[in-house]
Design a protein around this nucleic acid. Structure first.
Lengths: 213, 213, 213, 213
DNA sequence: TATGAATGAGCATTCATTCAT
DNA sequence: CATGAATGAATGCTCATTCAT
């Protein structure tokens, strides 16, 4: 029946993309539950029924959005290998790249996922395993290596990962909440994060001991 | 109608609390939209109609939950004044206290708010203004003071606040997503956050210059 | 919660009856699938949603109709015991009574069940087991007894039961198909059935032997 | 358009047959309403749209099935003329033939028609007029003749026809409901029906008068 | 002719809200 | 105040039918 017509395949892929784009936009505006299939169809410029030719159900649209996030996430891997320059340079490069990846996939998709992830068990697990966990797996060896070489102070590596990941996540949340300061200064974040992460807030090493009461 | 009967008033307050507790639990489990008034009523042990004697509508329950968060947030103010000991001690005390406040108001209420805040314009604004912004207002003078005294390095104070606040927020998100490591190590966070925040990850001051290529 | 209020219970039963009556009528007119819940609600004089306070789903209405058939079927048992008079009288009494039972529960419910029973596996099984089979179980001992006593000719009892039951069923089908002759002469059926069943069509015993080839 | 190309005509007839076979099968399994055009198309191995090149609409498929029943019904006529041998032999031959005709056209088509016939006014009328009524018209003269000649007892001929026709119909219903006994003993039916129909259940002529109390 | 993607009317079901008791 | 049956608008999804290719 379905001859593997490459032109057909492209049309289908294009239609899927068109629908997922619309769904992302609409879900981001109204939230997954409040958005209706009619809303999505209208935004995509198709009939209600057409959506069901490409997605099994409304929740399936959500998975479609998540999968696109995963894909753009995966494409980042090679870049993460750039281990050139000083530790500081590498760190800054990593942070910058992570923020760019996030920005690249669009804040709308993130808004959709983050708003659902806390109250949708299965989606939450999938998101953690497929999006968050992989970032841990990539950053952890780097952190361990620096700690072993005495470049980084010895602390619980896994927890540090949570700290870093949490910082990214939290900054995105604040931005999505509409904090104007953060929107305005978003491009200054890589430097700020790098500095605090490596050196902390304290003015210099001497201040760091507790004897200075 | 409402005679200022103090006993009546207490009964009413108790019933409100009972309903809000139920709503918080149910909304946290299913999400605001997926949870039904019937669910809440059942969890509260009252009839559906009774809820409407205490709350105007379903969204009004959400506002009720947010207001309780605000209240517990406000009660923290006095404690925040503890400016005793070294900067490090003050910082650690602040962080610890913030985490305790968060833990005290229960993760369930947070789950409810955070899941709605991104897709509910008015709730999002209210949450930012009434819960997030106040923490900025309290921490900012402290940060400024330390920077002026040369204790903290000079950086964009407002952005640093976002960094700190975002870190809290993100760590909570990760915990709510069910990260087992974070649940297990939650009590070690105050120390970790304090250390990274003040000193960074770098082993010592010498590493901090970029000459070490 | 639900106090076993007998008045409440009666109201509920009355509402259920009202809805089942409407469903029977509407399903009989349009068929189960073509009839809509809105149709049933309108016929019952209630809102769509009300139906779901009394029945879990649309198929559940069908089961409700079947159960009422069962109940009226069961109430017939005691009467079936009338074993007075000659075999002929008993037979005629049985047939008459069976037809009256059928007529009593209304042809509408039968129309609904018979139209669904052939294409709805589970309903079909239930109907056969709960409505048809019991009539076999009641008539079989009587048939056996007559055969043993030499009153009836010896033939496969089980198959004779099918013959009799089939005849009832088929006559009902023809009537439901609107055969005017059958509607008009319905009351003459008990005698006709009794006569054919006991004596056959042949004019007298002599014709009955096969030697006259 | 349709050039009277005999090869084309045959291809078209073949395709129609293929689709009707599929429709019969699918409708028998799921019922007319629950079956979808997609189901039929899949079973026929064609595309959805193709069906509409051969049938105007979904109900039209039903009429197509009915018409095939009619045709096979009509082809029976000549055979029914076999009026050889004794009345008993003629009767048995008729009954046997009727059952064979029914069996020949397949129980599936019957299941489809019988399930729809009760709730579809126009289909019901058509079925009665084109399938049932003709069997009356053929058997009636025979019955009348026997009654006139004193071979059959004098009873309402039209009603007897209903009895016989109903018995067939009812036995088919029971079989379609899945009665295992009936499926197993189906081939013994002609003899059983002939015997009961001619001689009744009573052991001999003496029992037949009502004086025997 | 054959195909199957697109369409959109139609339906079962849910659920916030009301209100008579 | 408390109750919970009744309401009916709203929504996800299905499917007969059309039509461009």
């Amino acid at each position: 029946m379905t001859h593997d017509d490459p032109i057909q395949a492209q049309l289908i892929a294009a239609r899927r993309t068109q629908i997922l784009d619309a769904a992302t936009k609409v879900f981001a505006e109204k939230g997954f539950e409040r958005a209706t299939i009619k809303d999505v169809a209208k935004a995509a410029g198709v009939a209600d029924g057409t959506i069901y030719n490409y997605f099994k159900s409304k929740p399936d649209l959500l998975l479609g959005i998540l999968n696109r996030l995963n894909e753009s996430e995966q494409r980042r891997d090679d870049l993460a290998q750039i281990s050139q320059g000083s530790v500081r340079e590498q760190t800054r490069a990593y942070i910058k790249h992570r923020l760019e990846v996030i920005q690249g996939q669009g804040f709308e998709a993130l808004r959709v996922m983050l708003s659902e992830v806390l109250i949708n068990q299965s989606l939450g697990s999938t998101y953690f395993e497929q999006v968050i966990q992989p970032t841990f797996d990539i950053a952890e060896p780097f952190l361990k290596q620096q700690a072993d070489q005495g470049v980084f102070r010895s602390m619980d590596t896994a927890l540090i990962l949570r700290f870093i990941s949490g910082t990214f996540l939290g900054l995105i949340m604040l931005r999505l909440m509409g904090d104007p300061k953060l929107i305005e200064q978003w491009d200054n974040l890589p430097d700020l994060i790098t500095n605090i992460l490596l050196d902390g807030l304290a003015a210099d090493g001497e201040n760091n001991d507790e004897s200075a009461s």
